[in-house]
């Protein structure tokens, strides 16, 4: 593995040649004994044994029901449930971040009413548990039987029955997006604050229009701070969507429960859900790497290589080694 000991050169130390080198001008002919770390070997061995035990426990215990897991993993109802989970996540994140960006810009606008409205919004929606909020939206019809759109305290133009407008899916989307918006606004705000004030000042000095200052100068640089935290939120929401099971929406977690209540294969079906959540999260993590890399432009002197680039470099190095 290692490329061998580094060649020992004549010391060019600022403090002058060290006495050892002076006594042994033929230093290079001595054999170098690499340092040994017995504890590292011991720790490696211990972890390997533990891993083997875990694998053994997973494979050999028939109670895990791997066959049933395989049967249900691509079962049509499950796939449809996965699709709904993805749809809820996407809607929650996209609407949440649009709302969050607006709220963050309101908060930073310096206009007193906008600032306090944004602050209050975040305060309320961070204070109320998501599950409670979802139930509120679901039961909105009890609170307001009709929703009307018009002049406040004046005439209304359109009136719809709440029940017709807000079904379970709309209620869930609304709840997730409004909840996510509060968190997203803080993430976006942190990103904007992380951008050096000099960047805005330079844009202002150059006469760049205000909207363009935000879109072209501030937000792209804020993304470096925003992306890792936002990715955390997205991954969190993938699993967070499971709370909408209380509204009987057939997303992944709800559907799995329905099936195991029917056939009693609890562990197998929980595993099916686990595997799907892991697959989605893995895909998102890969996407995160590339998005971060994109917004890392100009922040590092050299961008880190992508896994494919790294693989290609490693293969090339091996080939070169063999040819020699």
């Amino acid at each position: 593995m290692s490329a061998g000991p580094p060649p020992v050169r004549e010391s060019t130390d600022e403090h002058g040649p060290s006495p050892v080198v002076a006594d042994h001008p033929d230093f290079e002919e001595l054999k170098v004994v690499p340092a040994r770390y017995p504890w590292r070997w011991f720790a490696t061995l211990a972890v390997a044994v533990l891993l083997a035990m875990a694998a053994h426990a997973l494979v050999t215990n028939p109670a895990w029901d791997w066959k049933v897991v395989g049967e249900y993993l691509f079962y049509e109802t499950i796939l449809r449930a996965v699709w709904l989970t993805l749809k809820l996540t996407a809607l929650g994140i996209v609407l949440g971040f649009v709302l969050g960006t607006v709220l963050a810009l309101m908060r930073l606008s310096g206009v007193p009413l906008l600032t306090s409205v944004a602050w209050t919004y975040v305060w309320i929606f961070r204070s109320v548990p998501l599950i409670l909020q979802l139930l509120f939206w679901y039961n909105l019809a009890i609170l307001y039987r009709y929703l009307s759109f018009g002049v406040p305290f004046g005439p209304s133009f359109v009136e719809v029955a709440t029940m017709d407008l807000i079904g379970p899916l709309t209620a869930a989307t609304l709840g997730l997006a409004l909840h996510q918006g509060a968190y997203a606004s803080e993430i976006v705000r942190a990103g904007v604050l992380s951008v050096d004030q000099g960047q805005l000042e330079a844009a202002a000095a150059l006469g760049v229009p205000r909207g363009r200052q935000i879109r072209r100068i501030v937000l792209p640089q804020a993304m470096r701070t925003i992306v890792p935290t936002a990715a955390n939120e997205i991954v969190g929401l993938v699993k967070g969507t499971s709370v909408v099971y209380i509204m009987a929406l057939p997303e992944l977690f709800y559907q799995v429960q329905v099936i195991y209540n029917r056939n009693g294969r609890v562990i197998a079906l929980l595993l099916v859900a686990t595997i799907w959540y892991m697959i989605i999260t893995s895909i998102l993590s890969v996407a995160q790497f590339y998005v971060e890399r994109h917004y890392g432009k100009g922040s590092a002197r050299v961008l880190p290589p992508t896994p494919t680039q790294r693989l290609r470099a490693a293969v090339a190095a091996r080939l070169a080694g063999w040819r020699r």
Partner: peptide, 25 residues
């Protein structure tokens, strides 16, 4: 603000800390 920004395009400004846009070439 919009009109002030327009006026500023007639005046170049060079900062002590350069303030180049870090994400642009």
């Amino acid at each position: 603000e919009r009109q002030i920004l327009k006026q500023r395009t007639q005046i170049g400004f060079v900062f002590q800390n350069f303030n180049l846009f870090a994400h642009l070439t």
